[in-house]
Design a protein around this nucleic acid. Structure first.
Length: 304
DNA sequence: GCTGTTCAAGCCTTGTCACC
DNA sequence: GGTGACAAGGCTTGAACAGC
C-alpha cells in the first residue's frame, strides 16, 4: 500500500475541512468518524492508449502538520499520476495558497471561527461533480439527494466497467449515454435527469467550459459576471448558482434554501421569527458583516 | 426588484373498500 | 370491529415564469 504525504499548515484540521456542509456525505465520498478518514475513488486522466481510470484513496491526518493519502488499490502510480491525486486532494480540502489567503482574511473578520480553525468548505475533486451535486439538492429532501448521488455512482457498474468502488460519472461518460432514461429510472434522478444530461453534453462539447470558469475566477475575481454566466445554464436558479459560486471560492452570496430557515431558527440564532418571507433579509442582517465571506460564516456552527 | 403561481418527483398521510 | 391492499391527494423542494 502506497502512501503520499502532504504538508499542511498547523491550523489545518481535516475533520473541520470535511464535515461542514452536505457534500461530504454524498457518494462516492465516505467519511468514517471513528478514524476521521475520508475515503473515495479519484479519476486519473487517460494515459497513452488507456481510458481514464479510478484509484481509491483514503485521507487521514496523522499529525497536525501533515496529511496522509493512502492508495487502497494495488497498482503502480506514475509520478504524474501522483501529482494528479495530490491536485484533486488539494481541491477537495482547499489547500492552495489562494485558499490559505482567503482563510486568513476570513479569520480576521470572524474571531470565533479563527479560534476553532474553521474556514474551509469541502468540495469534490472536480467542479463538474460539484455542479451536478448542486443540481441534485433541488426539489427534494437531503436524504433523496444522497440516494441520487449513490445511483450516479452505480452507473459505471451498469455500464459494465470493472471497478470496486463506483466513481461519480464524468461529463463525458454521461454525455455518451444513449438516453437519459437510465438516469431517470435507475439513478432515480427524476426530472433532474434531463438537466444533468444537458449539462454533461454542453460540458463535453466544450460549450460550457467549466475548467476555464474555475481558472478564470480567481484571477479576475469578478463574481457578478460569473453569477450571470452560470445563471444562463438550464436548471440554475439562485440556489444552485450560489452553491456553485461557493464551490468556486466566491463566498458573498449565501445559497438560501429551506434548510437555511431551519438552520437560523433552531441551530444558530434561536430566531423563531424566521420564515420563507423574510429569510433573505435575515440572512443579510446576520451575515453581511462578514462580507465578502458570508457563506463561510454561514456554515460555521458554534459548539453547543 | 418583488410577489404569487405552476411545474416536477417521490414520499407521506389519509381515505376507501373488500374481506375475515 | 379489525386488517390489509390499494388509490388519491397532499406535502415538500427549487426553478421557471408571469404579472406588477
Amino acid at each position: 500500500m502506497k502512501k503520499i504525504e502532504v504538508k499542511v499548515s498547523s491550523t489545518f484540521e481535516l475533520e473541520k475541512s470535511v464535515c461542514n456542509h452536505g457534500f461530504f456525505m454524498m457518494a462516492p465520498n465516505r467519511w468514517i468518524p471513528s478514524t476521521k478518514t475520508l475515503t473515495r475513488p479519484l479519476r486519473l486522466l487517460p494515459h497513452h492508449h488507456h481510458h481514464s481510470s479510478n484509484v481509491t484513496i483514503s485521507i487521514s491526518q496523522p499529525c497536525s502538520t501533515s496529511l496522509s493519502i493512502t492508495l487502497l488499490d494495488d497498482r503502480i502510480i506514475s509520478p504524474s499520476q501522483q501529482q494528479e491525486i495530490m491536485d484533486q486532494v488539494k481541491r477537495m480540502l482547499r489547500l492552495s495558497k489562494e485558499d490559505e489567503k482567503q482563510v486568513k482574511e476570513f479569520h480576521r473578520l470572524h474571531e470565533e471561527a479563527a479560534k476553532r480553525g474553521f474556514g474551509r468548505l469541502f468540495r469534490n475533486p472536480s467542479l463538474f461533480e460539484d455542479v451536478v451535486k448542486s443540481l441534485l439538492l433541488c426539489g427534494c429532501r437531503f436524504q433523496r439527494s444522497l440516494e441520487m448521488a449513490k445511483g450516479l455512482c452505480k452507473l459505471q457498474k451498469w455500464l459494465g466497467k470493472k471497478c470496486k468502488w463506483g466513481n461519480f460519472p464524468s461529463a463525458q461518460e454521461l454525455a455518451n449515454l444513449e438516453s437519459e432514461e437510465l438516469l431517470r429510472n435507475k439513478c432515480k434522478l427524476g426530472y433532474r435527469a434531463g438537466l444533468v444530461m444537458c449539462l454533461a453534453k454542453a460540458v463535453a462539447d466544450g460549450e460550457i467550459k467549466l475548467l476555464d470558469y474555475e481558472l478564470d475566477n480567481m484571477q479576475l475575481g469578478d463574481e457578478e459576471s460569473m453569477f450571470q454566466k452560470l445563471k444562463t445554464i438550464k436548471g440554475f436558479g439562485d440556489f444552485v448558482t450560489c452553491n456553485v459560486l461557493m464551490c468556486m471560492g466566491f463566498y458573498d452570496r449565501i445559497p438560501i434554501d429551506s434548510e437555511t430557515i431551519r438552520h437560523i431558527k433552531q441551530v444558530i440564532h434561536q430566531r423563531k421569527e424566521c420564515q420563507r418571507k423574510n429569510i433573505k433579509a435575515m440572512v443579510k442582517e446576520i451575515y453581511d458583516k462578514y462580507a465578502p465571506f458570508q457563506t463561510l460564516a454561514y456554515w460555521y456552527v458554534p459548539p453547543p
